[in-house]
Amino acid sequence: MEFKSNREALYSGLPSSLQSASNKLGIKKVKDGFLKTFLQKTLYTDKKKQQNVPLEHLSVVSEVLECQPKKAKPDLGPRKKRKTLTNMERKKLKIFDIKKEDQKYEKYLPLHNLWKEYIKDLLCGPKDKSDGCLNNDAQKLLKADLHGAILTVKKSKCPSYIHTTGIVLQETRNTFKLITKENKLKCIPKLNSIFAIEDSGIIYTIYGNHFRVKASERAIRKFKSKATVDL
């Protein structure tokens, strides 16, 4: 067997005999984004310089070698170190903000399909539509997760919000964050607006005023049923 030169051997693909049997071995192709993000995370680069120089450029590699190790942080004393981030730190780092490049409607369609399956599992099927069953469903939907649902604003005090539809990406205590078909991320307050959800032919309405609870706390909270709903 002949050996190629070092550089060629490094970048060459798998031999043809292995490629033909790749199904048996369970070799999968790596997605495009994975390799790039992996390299960006694992290679240490100076962040200020990285903005100007592309990653593929060779000069970056030489700069990495020249970089000096960072200075050790000063001792905080006997105070016990916190292992998790505090809420203030989380807000500062902007951990939960979605980047502008990723705000595309088609990207989140699989999430909506996943939600459909989940809601089909949770609620009883569309075959029996008796009143008791519907009532039960409504109670369950109050405690269900709405990430991935398609939501429509039915009524609102602010007229510009009306008739916006989109997939729910995030739900906070006071707002829904929807992504619309025009690839725009919209933050809609729950206060003073009424929403509608469609599931297998039945339309459920949500009164935003009474829905102002954290998404995680909704599972535990008990809702009181009222004869009339005041806005």
Partner: peptide, 21 residues
């Protein structure tokens, strides 16, 4: 609900590996 959220997190990671939000 926990099961759904876990799967949704997986999906969010595979659709956009650069954005973890």
């Amino acid at each position: 609900r926990i099961n759904f959220l876990y799967q949704a997190a997986h999906q969010a990671l595979t659709t956009s590996p650069s954005d973890l939000s």
